[in-house]
Design a protein around this nucleic acid. Structure first.
Lengths: 236, 236
DNA sequence: ACCAAAAACTTGTATATACAAGTTTTATCC
DNA sequence: GGATAAAACTTGTATATACAAGTTTTTGGT
């Protein structure tokens, strides 16, 4: 079924991105949108709540839905977004260098971390080059329960695209942690660390829709090129 | 009106935090909860969707709502949370040192940033000491349109508590940005930088419920003590 | 004992109605 | 003209119903 509220959400996101509605504009009222889309007010409200959650609008009781100035901070980097998606959106000149790809030995601690002691784990290390500089070192670990085969061709492209489109896996959510660590020998070897003594590390445990652990990812960024943008609502 | 779905949400959060429901447990079904709380299924669903958004549960169609292992990464530091709230939750031995407090001169660029050229802006600088070490430098800027008076007593305690409880201001959302910058002379002077050459900076533009810009905050953390934890759902 | 179909659950989407609560506009009175 | 009250909007909450879609359990046949 094509979900109506997702259609309305996508429509409105497009209209905001394409500047049909600018910052501080008020969207049509819920009743007007309901009439426009020939649907019920509750369905419109589902779409608007999605927009609100994702930082596109602010709903104000009695007034309406105001479009937010989301581009003040430019595109968000929070959430679960693949490097290819970010690079495409930001129109970066980027290149991915596959450094290593293979199955981990049975005694590797990552088997504990992914809670997959009965399976083998794929390990991929890739370097992201932006504007000719090696900036990011991505280390990914997948259980072969969900990813039976990982080839060089796949790893050189977008693994996420392969997982979602080819394997039909549905990523649900992630726990993320950002910390700063001292640069390792490996960082120095693979990246253009430019004399920096520390590196910013994003560690993510990624889960599927059925709440099974699916992937561990460690993304190591040179500090001067690191930027994390987030939209947060106050929980009352 | 005491909103039913908030009551149910608070109840379930408490029960999860207090381990009545542990990780991987399934909550009662929506119909069971509706009967238990003598309400409709839709109202229960609102509460469960809040739990899902905030990373407490994963809803799985056809199965139910599974409690997530949120304490794996311990308490989240994302969202909009005051230092006092974090310190209390994490039971840190902390102290706040008020370094400066006053109104900015009229030509200060912060007037542009807060879009409040017709008002005066309060500036507060505070140092957060944790376990005897000066770790965080917090710089806050408020328009006197919303905060007419800021005293030393208020600034030494929790400004947010004062704003929300005393002034009745309702914080809505924030755009946040995390970057790494070189340490400044001021950082060296006020913090125990321990020889680090860089500092992690969280910059936030905070808005009220009515979408007016309310505050700019810059939180400067010594890198070895910095940790940012987040829960993210994949947008499909 | 095994397999397959059906039933009985679960959550997801869509609709309708009613009223509460907050804001803006209009009407009315003085 | 100006203040006040009423009306007409806006979004927020609560309820009920119907069916779709996914999972688990039961049933029945072989």
């Amino acid at each position: 079924m094509q979900r109506k509220y997702v259609i309305i959400y996508d429509d409105l996101v497009n209209e905001i991105v394409n500047k049909k509605w600018k910052a501080f504009d008020m969207l049509p009222s819920e009743n007007e949108l309901a009439k426009e889309y020939n649907t019920s007010r509750e369905t419109v409200r589902k779409a608007l709540n999605l927009l609100s959650q994702n930082g596109y609008i602010q709903k104000i009781q009695g007034k309406g839905s105001m479009v937010l100035d989301i581009h003040k901070f430019s595109l968000p980097v929070s959430g679960i977004v693949s490097f290819k998606e970010i690079a495409r959106k930001q129109k970066l000149e980027s290149r991915t260098i596959l450094h290593s790809l293979g199955l981990l030995e049975k005694n590797h601690p990552m088997y504990e971390k992914l809670k997959r002691t009965k399976h083998r784990i794929w390990a991929v290390e890739r370097v992201r080059e932006i504007s000719g500089e090696k900036i990011i070192l991505d280390k990914d670990y997948f259980s072969d329960e969900y990813v039976p085969l990982l080839t060089e061709d796949i790893a050189k492209g977008s693994i996420y695209e392969y997982l979602e489109d080819e394997l039909g896996l549905s990523i649900g959510f992630a726990h993320k942690e950002i910390v700063v660590e001292e640069v390792t020998e490996e960082d120095k070897e693979l990246l253009d660390v430019n004399g920096f003594q520390v590196i910013v590390v994003i560690k993510s445990l990624v889960y599927l829709d059925d709440a099974n652990i699916f992937q561990y990812n460690e993304s190591r960024h040179r500090p001067d090129k690191f930027r994390f943008v987030d939209f947060a609502r106050r929980i009352k």
